[in-house]
Amino acid sequence: MVQTFSDFTVSKMTFRLLTKQRLVVLCIILALIFGAIYLKLHYLQDIYEGSPSSSERCFTELTSTKYQLNVVTEYKNRIDKLLTEMEKKQKAEKERFRDIMDSCVAMKQQSLICQSQFEDLQSECKKVKEDYDKIKQDMEKPKPTR
């Protein structure tokens, strides 16, 4: 096999052409890989830069929640205070009611005693009146003369 200069030149040119195509394809592939790496790093950087704002947002929400908790705690304390005052008032009213009921029971008993005494006095008065009427009739009767 004897190669001629023209065959060698053609084959060398074909090899060069093939190598140039490979080099172009290799450059395009490398460009795509570097582009993908750049986009991935850019995405990661955006996430990383977004993290401090997330921390700030989280801190702001924590502060807001703490404020709301303080407000709710203050309302709870007020309600507890009002509840305690209402319980004291209710206890005082209950004691007052019990005293009034005891007084009513005592008055009812006193009323029954008075009613009984009144009935006793009426019956005694009736007896006295009957005795009086009897004595009066006896006095009105003519006395026998002597």
Rank of each mutant, 00 (worst) to 15 (best):
L62F: 09
V24H: 03
D133F: 14
E87A: 13
F118A: 15
T60A: 08
Q137C: 10
E61I: 14
Y38V: 12
F15M: 03
T145D: 12
M101P: 01
D120G: 01
K143R: 09
C114S: 07
A36W: 04
E95Q: 10
E56T: 15
I113A: 06
N77I: 09
K12E: 01
Q21A: 05
S55Y: 07
E95W: 04
V72W: 03
D102K: 13
Q90Y: 11
I100K: 14
L83W: 07
Q115C: 02
L39G: 01
A106I: 03
V24S: 07
T65F: 02
S51V: 15
K108I: 12
M86T: 11
V105I: 03
V10E: 06
E49T: 14
K134G: 09
K127Q: 09
D131F: 00
E56K: 10
E74I: 01
P52F: 09
I37K: 00
R22Y: 06
F15K: 15
K88F: 11
Q90W: 05
K89W: 01
E49N: 08
S11F: 11
L112Q: 04
M139F: 10
S123K: 04
M101G: 05
S54I: 14
C58H: 07
C125N: 14
K76S: 04
L83F: 02
S64V: 13
I113T: 04
R16K: 11
A31E: 00
D99F: 06
T73E: 01
M107W: 02
C27A: 12
D99E: 10
K127V: 13
K81H: 03
K134T: 15
S123W: 03
Q45C: 01
D7Y: 03
G35D: 01
M101Y: 09
K66W: 03
I113M: 04
K76L: 03
S103F: 00
I100H: 14
G50Q: 04
T73R: 14
T19K: 03
Y43K: 05
A106F: 03
K81I: 07
P144W: 10
D102A: 06
T145V: 12
L17R: 10
G50D: 06
N70V: 06
V71Q: 05
